[in-house]
Design a protein around this nucleic acid. Structure first.
Length: 275
DNA sequence: GGGATTTGACCCCA
DNA sequence: TGGGGTCAAATCCC
């Protein structure tokens, strides 16, 4: 059952990749005035679909379910292809795992523990050398039911005022946000920026107006994305405040993190006016 | 009862 | 070799 679920998701991803390639092909066959940033954005998305597919295949393989060879995100075959055979040796598997190698990571420092819209499950806590506070280890709740490889580590790195460092590892391949996010394009904030507002069950999020800004459009496929907290919106902060306070930025990693909101981004692309 | 968290054990890798 | 990441049994909580 898990295998068929993973298989369906791989098919979905690959189908999506084909659609994007067709989209790109149509654009290339048009008047030839394809915006380079748009093309790069499409290529990024296509690459993401194939990376996700490989990720799903790898995860189902690690569960001993898949018949596909284990493949890392960089395309290399798993160095220990016999690992899946060990899944039949269930006696005391404690500590028997394949530590992931250099996966994409990015960090965020915040004064509070914030809600990022995904469901996390804590699977460990560790006292770190020369650190006052233990580090918590969390994985995506949908690690097993959807093969999501995302995980994060949270550690308090400062007491007064408290600062929490969250390190994200891997990308969400699941599709389970608590609530869909809202996408805002605001030309008044900063060039090449998009703000995402994730819904939260505990806060009364103000509806945020979606403001297409034509001069921002070439920046949509830029690698720079910015993610803001819902709480900032609900507190009435304006977009300028968001960028000066509790917003982090990064490049390809954030793009991948927003994968769960891919449909919204796709609709954003679809809404682009003709140049 | 089932899902989430805690916690000690185990193993990878710098 | 030891710090850090992950596993899984025990425990907690709703």
């Amino acid at each position: 059952m898990e295998f068929s679920n993973g298989r369906k998701r791989v098919i979905d991803k690959l189908t999506r990749g084909l659609e994007l390639i067709n989209h790109l092909q149509v654009m290339l066959n048009g008047d030839g005035a394809l915006e380079q940033s748009l093309a790069e954005g499409l290529v990024d998305k296509i690459l993401d679909t194939f990376k996700d597919s490989l990720s799903i295949l790898s995860s189902t393989e690690s569960n001993g379910i898949s018949r596909f060879p284990a493949v890392n995100l960089d395309g290399r075959k798993s160095e220990d292809s016999s690992e899946s055979c060990k899944t039949f040796e269930w006696k005391d598997r404690r500590g028997r795992y394949k530590r992931r190698r250099t996966s994409e990571t990015w960090t965020k420092d915040t004064p509070t523990l914030f809600e990022d819209g995904h469901a996390w499950r804590k699977y460990g806590q560790k006292v770190i050398l020369n650190a006052k506070h233990p580090r918590s280890y969390l994985r995506c709740t949908h690690k097993y039911d959807q093969g999501c490889q995302a995980s994060k580590q949270v550690q308090q790195i400062q007491d007064d005022p408290p600062i929490y460092r969250t390190t994200y590892l891997g990308h969400h391949t699941c599709k389970n946000l608590f609530k869909p996010c809202q996408i805002i394009m605001d030309s008044t904030v900063k060039d090449s920026s998009i703000i995402l507002s994730f819904g939260s069950g505990s806060t009364s999020t103000k509806p945020v107006e979606y403001k297409p800004a034509s001069r921002m459009i070439p920046a949509i496929s830029s690698s720079d994305y910015f993610v803001a907290q819902t709480t900032a919106f609900s507190s009435g902060a304006d977009h300028g405040d968001l960028f000066s306070s509790d917003v982090y930025s990064c490049t390809a990693s954030t793009h991948s993190m927003m994968e769960a909101d891919d449909m919204l981004l796709e609709s954003l692309f679809d809404d682009l006016p003709e140049f």
